[in-house]
Design a protein around this nucleic acid. Sequence first.
DNA 1: CCCTTGACTATCT
DNA 2: GAGATAGCCAAGG
Length: 113
Amino acid sequence: MTGSQEKFDKAIWKVVSRIASGRVMAYGEVARAAGYPRHARMVSKAMARSAEPLPWYRVVRSDRTLAFKVGSDAHNRQRSLLEKEGIQFVDGKVVLVDSGDDKDLDELLWGPD
DNA sequence: CCCTTGACTATCT
DNA sequence: GAGATAGCCAAGG
């Protein structure tokens, strides 16, 4: 086996497994936190290679939308898993309820109008 | 070895 | 602000 890839995988798994429930991280953020900047596209591969179940669903795009195609099984699966942790979706984007900014949250949930 | 693909991003139109 | 473009990097054909 390629040892270098194993090192990369472990670093990614470590970061992903540390994402708190109800929180999310972007692929690029995970890669950077793991010490591999510019490896955002590799994060998914590393997670898929994990033998142990990982909170992969807490990893989203930098714009907070889900990476999977809308309507796909994986997309729906990820969405329900996140919602089960209290995360909400507004306009296809995840909204962290514990963001602490109640004013903005109210606007997002009730609409600025 | 060249080319395509993708669970990505930042930037420009 | 949505769509196109251009970097990015490993994997597979």
